[in-house]
């Protein structure tokens, strides 16, 4: 498992493809919203939170898919399956590498977004990294599973969002709510946060258990 993770990081260091494209894409999505909304609207925490997550979900989806397409170039995924590695471990490796890259991107995009929107700084913002990480974990878990399915079908660009977005609805609702409360400086560690963490756990377990069915032929 660590071997796969190490290889993914090395590949990214070599190509710098994933992080850079993810970053630019997330920024562009945010820009579109900034142009579409009035400054007053932008200052509302609810908008800020929605924006953060929309950018993360859409950029992240492409990033996750990209990772698997890279793996497909010389059919390397088959090479991976030849190795004596349990499919559950392959899942965790891919999942962790997705979490890692999304976190790296968000570490820059999130503060940038808040600055662009002109949201006031408050102490509760210190909780934002944790909330973002929780969202990324759940998203990557389902995303890794769905991308493994989508990548080996025709029209994979369409199939991935079609599968992933409806399944993500609960996570998305929870994440947007927690972030909204957080940006508004309210208490955010309530029910929604617990729900978010619970969804994370469920999604990771689902991905881990079902990945084996998806990767074997």
């Amino acid at each position: 498992m660590w071997a796969i993770l190490w290889k993914d990081l090395l590949l990214e260091l070599r190509t710098k493809e994933r992080v850079s494209s993810l970053f630019v894409l997330a920024l562009l999505i945010i820009l579109v919203f900034v142009f579409a909304l009035t400054p007053e609207q932008l200052k509302q925490p609810a908008f800020g939170s929605a924006l953060l997550w929309v950018a993360l979900v859409f950029a992240g989806m492409l990033g996750i898919q990209r990772a698997l397409i890279l793996e497909q170039e010389r059919n390397c995924f088959t090479g991976l399956l030849l190795c004596p590695i349990d499919p559950g471990q392959v899942f965790f490796a891919k999942f962790l590498s997705n979490v890692f890259f999304l976190t790296v991107v968000e570490a820059v995009v999130a503060p940038l977004t808040l600055a662009l929107l002109g949201l006031p700084f408050s102490v509760s913002l210190l909780g934002l990294p944790l909330v973002l990480l929780c969202g990324i974990v759940g998203f990557s878990a389902l995303g890794t599973l769905c991308a493994a399915i989508a990548v080996r079908t025709r029209a994979r660009e369409i199939i991935l969002p079609l599968m992933l977005l409806p399944l993500l609805v609960p996570l998305f609702i929870a994440a947007v709510h927690v972030t909204g409360a957080l940006l508004a400086g309210e208490v955010w560690t309530g029910t929604w946060f617990r729900v978010l963490v619970a969804f994370d756990v469920i999604f990771v377990v689902i991905g881990w258990l079902t990945f084996g069915f998806v990767v074997q032929e």
Binding site: L142, L145, I149, T153, M163, P166, L167, V169, P170, L171, I173, A174, T191, W192, V195, F199, I202, I206, T210, F213, V214
Partner: peptide
Amino acid sequence: YAAVLGIVGVIDIPLIYISIRL
């Protein structure tokens, strides 16, 4: 693939329900 999606979909239903109910 479809079978996995079908099962994950069903597991997701209660989660969707909880989140939407809240």
